[in-house]
Design a binder for these strands. Structure first.
Lengths: 213, 213
DNA sequence: AATTATACAAACAGATACGTATGTTAAAAT
DNA sequence: ATTTTAACATACGTATCTGTTTGTATAATT
């Protein structure tokens, strides 16, 4: 029963959608292609027509979303130095809002967190690391501008602020995604961000009074 | 070839040790019992003699180590309020040192992070959550004592400090363990802790001068 | 209108992996 | 000295998953 091109694209998408749900529920390695086929209402024949194997299916699924941090990078473009910290904080908070509201991204992110990065999924890991690297570089330079303009507390260096922010975000999301969403990600996350950024902004208490430069 | 009791205990331990390495390298779900048996220099018969199946083997392996946070809990016992913050910081730093030096714990922790908590491994997940819960409660009360004694910055509440610390530790360890140990865990981790705890300790800059109470 | 290529389903073959059943040796128990 | 039983190895049957092949109805092409 040959389908029209539009119909074929539909089944392809339904396979991807089913794979997302099945991989999320059973894990990538334990889920079989038959599980995915049944969830999509097709047979394995359809999957092997559209994709070459499970790894390829996973990679295609992985390409349907931009990575967790990827769009956060684009957001933090050049801003006036006075607003950089607020802007980064807002950007991170918005990103949490989006994640909390988008189950699709939640599933993808969860799958990525606990997928066994062995052997064949190396390209995924490499892309992840490249995105992380770009995000780190961007944050570093943003915090550096804030610091040069005198808006970063002496307690923090650009690098340490970047790491603290990234670790908090990663820990926050890991706990929420991997361990059953037992708290309000957006609310608690943004409160944590607020405290952390307050400490970024807080100028030293005891040191020299601002001399005219 | 019947072995003596001591020899049997040896093979049991070698199976556990092999399982640790194999699960770490191939992932729990993709590793077969034959892989484990070969790595241990025995056959599957030995495994089925000592353990009832793969899940049971995993649970036994899981019981051989105290959990990542478990011993950190015991450490943070009652301390004079003036030293509480320093004590927690040191305790967390020590724990990072130990993790960085102990490949055994690294592997177990890594396995736990990316194992598919579906279906049969629920007891593992539940124990994890219970340990996390106890750790959180302990940190809350410790930060609370620090705060009541005036040693916690007004920027932070006990709860927010607890969460910030836990998220930072979790993000730090996740990035290090899941993504190839590409930095010095103990050094960078302790520097991050130092910055964070400095911000915990830093009293507000502008607010009222300490009035006699 | 006849042909061809597409989009699958169904059937097939090979490889694991699991659980169990059975065999075997030597340590304990008697 | 037998007997028993612990500690495995070996062999077996079965289920499952994978990749491929074959069949087939129907769009698309000419």
């Amino acid at each position: 029963m040959r389908r029209t091109k539009a119909e074929a694209e539909e089944t392809r998408n339904s396979i991807l959608s089913a794979a997302e749900r099945v991989f999320f529920e059973k894990g990538v390695s334990t889920a079989s292609l038959d599980d995915v086929a049944k969830a999509a209402g097709v047979t394995r024949g359809a999957i092997y027509w559209h994709f070459s194997n499970k790894t390829d299916l996973f990679l295609e699924l992985y390409n349907t979303v931009n990575l967790p941090l990827e769009d956060m990078i684009e957001r933090d473009v050049e801003q006036p130095a006075a607003d950089v910290l607020c802007y980064i904080e807002k950007s991170a908070g918005d990103w949490l809002d989006e994640l909390a509201a988008d189950e699709h991204r939640q599933r993808i992110f969860t799958i990525l967190l606990r997928c066994p990065y062995g052997d064949d999924l190396l390209p995924v890991l490499e892309k992840q690391q490249e995105v992380d690297e770009r995000h780190t570089v961007m944050l570093d330079s943003a915090f550096d501008r804030a610091r040069n303009a005198g808006f970063l507390s002496g307690n923090w260096t650009p690098q340490s602020a970047t790491k603290a922010l990234r670790w908090m975000m990663e820990g926050l999301c890991s706990e929420w995604l991997l361990f059953g969403r037992r708290f309000d990600l957006a609310m608690e996350g943004k409160e944590g961000l607020k405290r952390l950024f307050d400490s970024f902004r807080q100028l030293p208490a005891i040191t020299e009074a601002p001399a005219a430069s």
